[in-house]
Amino acid sequence: MSPRAACRLEALGFQQVYDYTLGIADWKAAGLPVEGDHSPTQVVADATRSDAPVAAPDEQLGVAWARAQRTGRDDMIVVDCDGVVVGRLRDPVWQQSHDLLVAAVMELGPTTVRPNAPLVPLVERMQKRATDLVSVTTPQGVLLGVLLRADAEQLIAGDPPDQIWEDCDGCPGHWSTQ
């Protein structure tokens, strides 16, 4: 919707038009404040960590593993150069030779969800399938963050998650305790 609005504003004579293409879903996923009545329905964006340990398809598994260890997690989302989710790395992939390329060993087609999806039914599905993490993406598949089932369960129970992903500009980011 916003590209059309941006185009129309230009046509109306605005000289400096910028489009925040990822929009409110990205803003919420980063844990930034919002104004408004807050929807009574909890949505995926409310429990999404703003960034996730990511790997590139063309790097060696060992390089990705070293980065994963620094974040304290053993799963990573594989994104291509446009930020589109293309795979996932998790146990037991780390048992394979660390010389292999991520693309050769990654799990293909991981489950993704949209940030505006209702949270409760998603968590119920994750519980049934014993899934502990899903990638949160735009409809075009661009990674916005990850939803951990434990975070979502905590939020539904009324507690904020005890860890958040500290995103920062130009550095890898890290998990931190609130």
Partner: peptide
């Protein structure tokens, strides 16, 4: 019109 405007 001359001020920057951001849409989302």
């Amino acid at each position: 019109r001359s001020k920057p405007v951001v849409v989302y």
